[in-house]
């Protein structure tokens, strides 16, 4: 799907839906996922269709992923950091359950 032109320096480790993957410093999450052969990052909210990064410049909102528990982050604008937990999204996000509830 995509390969890297230059072999990269120290790898950043991250996980996508639990699967360990690597990227390089300077990668956005979207770039690291494309380089790892991951294209479809979510299922659309209305029709449940698979969607992939489309514009890579923060305009189309197709690359929304959950990053370290925060939903709907733009993968193409978010720099990859070591140890990130990235998850694909399926349909509408949920609100954090019972936040602020009485104990």
């Amino acid at each position: 799907m995509f390969r890297r032109l230059r072999e990269a320096a120290p790898a950043l480790r991250f996980r996508f839906d639990g699967e360990p993957l690597t990227g390089v410093p300077g990668d956005t999450i979207a770039a690291a996922l494309l380089a790892s052969g991951r294209l479809a990052l979510r299922k659309s909210v209305v029709g449940g269709e698979p969607r992939a990064p489309y514009c890579m410049m923060g305009v189309c909102f197709e690359c929304l992923v959950e990053v370290d528990g925060v939903a709907n982050r733009q993968a193409c604008l978010t720099p990859l950091t070591d140890g990130m937990e990235v998850r694909s999204q399926s349909g509408a996000r949920t609100i954090r359950p019972a936040a602020g509830q009485e104990p």
Binding site: M1, F2, R3, R4, L5, G26, A35
Partner: peptide, 8 residues
């Protein structure tokens, strides 16, 4: 940004 080249 990432030196990515499409394959296939």
């Amino acid at each position: 940004t990432a030196g990515l080249v499409p394959t296939g």
